[in-house]
Amino acid sequence: MALSDAAVVALARDGDSEAFRALVERHGRAVFRLAHRMTGSRTDAEDIVQETFIRAYRQLSRFESRASFGTWIHRIAMNCTIDLLRSRGSYHEAAYDDELLKEPSIQQTVPRAPSPERLILSREVKDAVQNAMGALSPLERSAFVLRHFEGRSHEEIGEALGLGTSATKHSIFRAVRKMRVVLAPFVES
């Protein structure tokens, strides 16, 4: 039977690098998924995975074994991602203005209505979703991912992103509206 995360963490704390490797193998994909969803970049996500586990390794002594390692490592990954986005200087909340949804840059990303045959191509749907996510600002994207995929409350998201609850909600609302515009042809057919 496989050792629990808590037991593996205890071994890793004692300097067992193979134990730490086991933690990387168990949680690496989930960390990558979170980072990729938030950044939309494979390269960034790989860098974030690396940085997350390096931080985790250095802070292993602070990890409380009563907590879930998965939750803990997710929080570190989320912070790493937010740090990366902030360091890029592109981490600003767009004004809450519906006019922005009419911007040509967003309208231009709307694909033409696909035929039913094309709809069955999951590749196309995947591309459209990536396109829709790409139309979000880093802040909207982060807020949406943390709400939708990570199931965080508005308060938690606001705390992580440095926003008030209301601004957090609006970021998520805006993200969904933008995605609806881009994905409308797929959803409607």
């Binding site: 990536q130 609806r180 959803v187």
Partner: peptide, 14 residues
């Protein structure tokens, strides 16, 4: 429509 939109996002984001 909203549920379909979010389901589509779930299936295509990764």
């Amino acid at each position: 429509g909203l549920e379909r939109l979010l389901a589509m996002v779930n299936s295509g984001v990764d």
